[in-house]
């Protein structure tokens, strides 16, 4: 209200600036929604409605044929059903383990610092930035040695290990905001390492866990290179690899590709829609700063 009073003298100018603001925002809105529009209208078209020259028209009849083909396969298309469940089996354990590891690491690195702990943290953090091409060949060799190559547990291991830096970072920065006095008070009360973790840190950790879980869930679900190289048995293929396979095979069945893309996008989108607010709050709480 007070701002209105202050800005009142320049009302005309303000109104114009509002117009400009909204036009820019709507222009970007269209840019962001354009692919979604194409994705939706295309995947709900039946095969006889699919034509390149009418690709921007709305479907005349609502049809789920493309989804059926993308999900169950048929006519030279390998369905994504199996891959979808592979991804679920991969993502859920990997996310849970990542959360636990990250939380413990963050706790140690923020509240139990030891000589060299900052260096260790920096060294761990660097792992987040490496191009995975630079570890690919040895990775395959080692996974083969420990008999985890071409298995889902193998892929879980890889995602957990290469997820350590980001999960540690998020938790460490998050725990850094927990006042040391609380930890000290816990120590004076005679609580040990796990006691403080359970009674002081964990109750405060929920936002950290949500942020890390969402982060790991979406990034593992969406990951491609490891999935391609490590679980190349088609029965173990994650969704991203299956989608690339779908789109690599034929240009002419693009409605199926679009339906497939939508299917792959769905779980992260649902997470985003239902938990996005919390993810954003996590961001706003500063969990990702630094």
């Amino acid at each position: 209200m007070s701002s209105v009073a202050i800005l009142a003298p320049g009302r005309r100018r303000i109104r114009w600036s509002r117009v400009v603001i909204y036009s820019i925002m709507i222009a970007f809105l269209l840019f962001f929604l354009l692919p979604v529009y194409l994705l939706l209208i295309t995947s709900f078209k039946s095969f006889d409605q699919v034509s390149l020259s009418r690709m921007w028209d709305l479907p005349t009849r609502f049809s789920l044929e493309s989804f059926d083909r993308a999900w169950n396969g048929g006519e030279g298309v390998i369905g994504m059903r199996g891959s979808f469940w592979n991804s679920v089996q991969l993502v859920v354990p990997a996310t849970v383990i990542s959360c636990i590891l990250g939380s413990l690491n963050g706790y140690v690195l923020s509240k139990w610092r030891f000589p060299g702990s900052e260096t260790l943290f920096t060294l761990i953090l660097f792992g987040m930035f490496i191009p995975y091409q630079s570890v690919l060949v040895p990775l395959v060799e080692v996974l083969r040695e420990i008999r985890l190559y071409a298995t889902i547990p193998g892929l879980i291991l890889v995602h957990v290990v290469y997820g350590i830096p980001i999960t540690t970072l998020i938790f460490r920065n998050y725990y850094a905001t927990v006042p040391n006095e609380l930890v000290e008070a816990g120590k004076i009360d005679g609580a040990d390492f796990f006691g403080i973790y359970r009674h002081v840190m964990l109750p405060l950790s929920a936002p950290g866990f949500v942020v890390v879980a969402i982060w790991q869930f979406t990034s593992i679900w969406n990951e491609f290179l490891f999935g391609l190289i490590i679980t190349n048995d088609p029965q173990l293929r994650p969704v991203t690899v299956a989608l690339q396979n779908l789109s690599g095979s034929q240009f002419t069945q693009w409605n199926v590709q679009m339906a497939g893309a939508l299917l792959v996008a769905l779980p992260p989108l649902l997470v985003y829609i239902f938990l996005g607010k919390y993810f954003l709050r996590g961001l706003l709480a500063g969990s990702l700063k630094g």
Binding site: F32, L38, M258, G260, A265, L269, Y272
Partner: peptide, 21 residues
Amino acid sequence: SVYIFPMALSFIVTGVVWQWL
């Protein structure tokens, strides 16, 4: 929400759709 949602998608999905566009 609209501005942020693409971040939830895989680069593969983005690639497939924009390849078309």
